[in-house]
């Protein structure tokens, strides 16, 4: 009797697990980064994404950032998530940053791998998202005052040499 009970509980657990797992996730993401480095001290990377499963629900999601830290994804709506972090304006690299997203199972596997001091790349992710940072504006390349001084020097040089020729 007890065996029967245990078996049915196990079956139920497996069944529930099968039902609740999200299969074939469709992800739409958009990213936002601060692009004016003249007024902010850190570049903010924000990724918002929406996950649609063909069946099942999503358990809580975790994200692995480019620096290797693992953080919980913020839930901002039904099946909508946000992952965000900051980097110093000097060290923030432009281009595409890849973020790996894990489900509860993947997160548990990650923790295990991290405890064993192994590389996290061995754990396969639930899906990937990318954050594009086109680079930040950190002031003009050449100051306008500098260009004006160069131009005025050029004009006065031209005038003085021509005048010298006439006088001579």
């Amino acid at each position: 009797m007890a065996d029967h009970f245990l078996f049915s509980v196990l079956l139920l657990v497996v069944f529930v697990g099968l039902i609740s797992a999200c299969t074939n996730p469709q992800v739409t993401s958009k990213s936002f980064t601060t692009q004016d480095a003249t007024i902010v001290t850190h570049i903010g990377f924000i990724s918002e994404f929406e996950v649609k499963c063909s069946s099942g629900d999503i358990s809580s999601l975790y994200a692995e950032l480019p620096d290797g830290s693992i953080i919980p994804a913020a839930v901002v709506g039904t099946n909508k998530y946000q992952v965000s972090w900051t980097e110093d304006t000097k060290t923030a690299a432009k281009g595409t940053h890849k973020i790996r997203i894990f489900e509860e199972d993947g997160y548990a596997a990650l923790r295990k791998v991290l405890r064993g001091n192994e590389a996290t790349s061995s754990v396969s992710e639930f899906f990937n998202i990318s954050v594009v940072h086109p680079g930040a504006y950190s002031g003009p390349w050449l100051r306008s005052e500098f260009i004006a001084v160069i131009a005025s020097l050029f004009v006065s040089y031209f005038a003085v040499t021509k005048k010298g020729k006439i006088v001579a």
Binding site: F32, T33, T34, A74, V75, V76, Q82
Partner: peptide, 10 residues
């Protein structure tokens, strides 16, 4: 960018 009201499961 981002949301002012968020939830974290855990």
């Amino acid at each position: 960018g981002g949301h002012l009201s968020t939830k974290f499961a855990r």
